[in-house]
Design a protein around this nucleic acid. Structure first.
Length: 552
RNA sequence: GUGCCCGUAGCUCAAUGGAUAGAGCAUCAGCCUUCUAAGCUGAGGGUUACUGGUUCGAGUCCAGUCGGGCACACCA
């Protein structure tokens, strides 16, 4: 519907010999008296052409040539809006596209033949995933789904470092607990990890090796055992939410030399130096970001000779270009906000097109339990664990609650609400709409032999005229637009809002329009309308990554 | 102190620079002998933190003020 109107407006602009660089925006008016769709193109073009918007709008209306039976009225309103009133039968008929497209309904083509990499989660294996990380994980996963819906071939990647200082500390932490198990008294440093899982890993090692590792000063056995246990637990947790990565990129590979004997890290240094952005002082190697107007230079290689995290970050992003992705999407939490500008600057200096890179930053999470808001504490041992949350409210509520707010807003995760098996809980509102349709269709099959799997005859929905039916069909038409704009904005929350609207429209339709008890012709059309809604709900659930229960 | 995010109904949040700022919860009033009432209908509730500016039009953009969050290492 969207593209239909855009095309017709373009035709009218050409016919009226109005040339404008403005892109055409279709919006839904706030009130039905302003029509079904509206455009503000007259304002935009008028400004560009220095003309009166109202006059231009009126002139344009004379140049529209909508096909018979599509638009009933075109109206200029206010200072220059052009409002379109659609023929109800045209709306009903347009909605029948759902039957033809099925699971493909609402998919876009802007990513056809293109590839995208979405990097998300990327937690180092130093401990179990926290609730805060969960938000980024679900956000990234939904963005990846949205990219796929636009036709991109998507690579979901997890970037990690198992060789850094934090991992060293992890190994030491486990060893301390192990020593305790062996009956040694230890002075556990404040800088080390104190989570319960550390003790559990130590216990596992103790049960396998007894006191056999006591004399060995090396922490390597502790570090590697901890890494493998934690990494598999992280993947297990993500798996519970349906999050599965295609690739895991180990930061350490950026330190090892390629066939030319130069590591990716070193290549970054060399190439930045060629461009005059590398300096040496205080015994360290610096990225001269002050040349770019920043307050301080950034260390790339510490005086100890080790790279800081910034260097491999840049090298890592270079591999994303080298691997040929058309779009590069990074998802991370607000605590990494300072990280990406430097990386982008470096990429630009090295001659890469940074418009390919999109960054989605999600704000932090607080949780509300028993009406009390608890602030997340990510350090120390008392962080809220994602696994506990999933245990508590289930995977669907976990996913939906993480994305039902804009990523730019701080999220208040109301655990009590998510647990409620009632209408207050949006998860159940969505599920209920789907289950209601399934139940209806089961009954229709057993009572009148209605086959929901068969294709309806062309024009069947045109039998329907009730306002609830029209609005529902009208809503179905928006699915593709919402999906596309949710992707462009990297904002799955738009899709959640839309799903709520569809569920609401369906519940109203169901309430007001008898289906099985209606005249057979009407009953059949209404059943097919329900089939269409079910398809849209399922397609939306797929993007959000939540289940579609057939009964409740 | 500097950078980024936020400030909208009692609460949690919407609103690609558009028309009368919308949902849900909570409150109040209705709707089940009838396809799942886990639902539907209606009512009340607002100086969009504040002050200026930009323009046909500002919750949205710009400047400043106030308030909340996050980040500001030769940690990752």
């Amino acid at each position: 519907m969207h593209s239909f109107l855009v095309a017709e407006i373009q035709k009218a602009l050409r016919s009226a010999s109005v040339t404008t660089g403005q892109s055409i925006i279709i919006e839904k008016p706030t009130s039905p008296k302003f029509g079904d769709y509206a455009t503000n193109i007259a304002f935009l073009a008028a400004k560009e052409l220095k003309r009166n918007p109202r006059q231009l709008a009126e002139e344009l209306t004379g140049h529209f040539g909508f096909p018979e039976g599509t638009v009933t009225k075109i109206e200029v309103a206010g200072p220059g809006f052009i409002n379109f009133f659609m023929e109800p039968a045209f709306i009903m008929q347009s909605a029948e596209r759902v039957f033809r497209d099925g699971v493909e309904y609402g998919k876009g083509s802007e990513g056809a033949g293109k590839t995208a990499i979405v990097e998300y989660v990327s937690a180092n294996p130093t401990g179990p995933l926290t609730i805060g990380r969960g938000r980024g994980g679900v956000l990234g996963d939904c963005i990846a789904n949205l990219a796929e819906a636009q036709g991109y071939r998507v690579n979901r990647e997890y970037y990690f470092n198992d060789a850094g200082r934090q991992m060293q500390i992890l190994g030491e932490s486990v060893r301390y607990r192990y020593l305790e198990l062996c009956g040694r008294s230890v002075d556990f440093p404040d800088t080390h990890y104190k989570g319960l899982y550390i003790g559990e890993i130590a216990e596992k090692i103790y049960s396998e090796h007894g006191e056999g590792l006591l004399q060995d000063e090396s922490i390597e056995p502790f570090r590697s055992e901890a890494e493998s246990i934690i990494f598999s637990s992280i993947q297990k947790t993500l798996g519970r939410l349906g999050i599965v990565h295609d690739s895991f990129f180990n930061e350490h590979t950026l330190y090892t030399a390629d066939q030319n004997g130069i590591s990716p890290n070193q290549q970054v240094i060399d190439r930045l130096r060629e461009n005059g952005f590398i300096g040496q002082y205080d015994g360290a190697t610096w990225f001269l970001t002050t040349k770019l107007g920043q307050e301080k230079d950034k260390v790339l290689i510490k005086s100890s000779g080790e790279p800081s995290y910034r260097l491999p970050d840049i090298a890592y992003h270079l591999t994303k270009y080298a691997r040929g992705f058309d779009m590069i999407i990074n998802v991370f939490g607000a605590d990494h906000i300072d990280e990406y500008p430097d990386v982008l600057e470096a990429l630009k200096i090295l001659g890469h097109d940074t418009t390919k890179v999109r960054i989605a930053i999600n704000q932090f999470v607080t949780t509300t339990v028993n009406g009390e808001t608890v602030k997340m504490s990510t350090r120390k041992g008392n962080a809220d664990l994602l696994d506990d949350l999933i245990d508590d409210v289930g995977p669907d509520a976990t996913r939906l609650f993480f994305i039902m707010r804009s990523k730019d807003s701080h999220l208040n995760f109301d655990v009590d609400l998510a647990k409620k098996q009632s209408k207050d809980n949006p998860v159940f509102y969505f599920h209920y709409a789907h289950a209601r349709i399934c139940s209806l269709l089961r009954l229709a099959w057993s009572e009148i032999g209605f086959d929901a799997a068969k294709l309806p005859e062309h024009g069947i929905l045109m039998r329907l005229r009730a306002p609830e039916e029209l609005q529902l069909a009208f809503g179905i038409l928006d699915f593709g637009d919402v999906s596309r704009s949710a992707f462009r904005m990297l904002e799955p929350q738009k899709m959640v809002d839309y799903m709520h609207a569809i569920a609401e429209l369906f519940h109203r339709f169901y309430q007001e329009c008898p289906i099985l008890k209606a005249e057979p012709e009407i009953a059949e059309a209404r059943l097919f309308l329900a089939v269409a809604v079910r398809q849209v709900l399922q397609n939306g659930f797929r993007i959000l990554g939540i289940s579609a229960p057939e009964s409740m």
